Computed example of a mutant assay.
Amino acid sequence: MTHDFHELVIGGVMFAPLITYAVAALVVILGLRPILHLVGFASIFSHVSIAEFSLYVVVLGGLVLLA
């Protein structure tokens, strides 16, 4: 079974599909941040930046698996 990867081409430069997924995950996380703030996400964890990074990794992994 072969997988057809579609590279992103910007100005003649080809970017790996992982870069596209990473940018998409960043957009999702930036969209979730106001919702997480309203829910009180920061009060649950002692290291909020590590928790947000972990959430980013989960979203990135989900995007890669769905593709």
Score class of each variant (00 low, 15 high):
A51Q: 04
F15M: 08
I29C: 07
L18V: 15
L8R: 03
R33T: 01
F45E: 02
A67C: 05
G12E: 03
A67D: 10
V27S: 13
A67K: 04
S43I: 03
F5R: 09
T20L: 02
S43D: 15
G12L: 09
G61V: 10
V58W: 06
V28S: 01
I10M: 13
Y21E: 09
L66N: 07
V39K: 00
P34A: 12
A22Q: 14
V13D: 14
V23C: 04
P34C: 06
H3K: 12
G11Y: 05
F45S: 02
L38I: 00
S43T: 10
F53Y: 04
L63E: 04
F15H: 14
T20Q: 04
L36D: 00
S46L: 10
L30A: 06
L55H: 02
F15P: 01
A25E: 01
A22R: 08
R33S: 02
L60T: 02
R33I: 02
M14Y: 15
I10Q: 07
A42M: 06
E52Y: 03
L18C: 07
V23A: 11
I19H: 15
H37P: 00
Y21H: 13
A24H: 07
A42N: 13
L65K: 13
G61A: 06
I44R: 08
V59Y: 03
V27P: 01
V28L: 03
F53N: 09
H6E: 12
V64Q: 11
A51M: 08
L63N: 05
A67R: 04
F15L: 13
Y21F: 15
T20W: 01
I35N: 01
L38A: 07
S49Y: 05
I50K: 06
A42P: 03
G62Y: 05
V23Y: 11
L36Y: 06
V48W: 05
L26G: 12
L60N: 05
I44E: 04
V58P: 03
Y56T: 06
I50Y: 11
A16E: 15
V48R: 14
L65C: 03
L26P: 00
E52A: 03
G40W: 02
P34N: 10
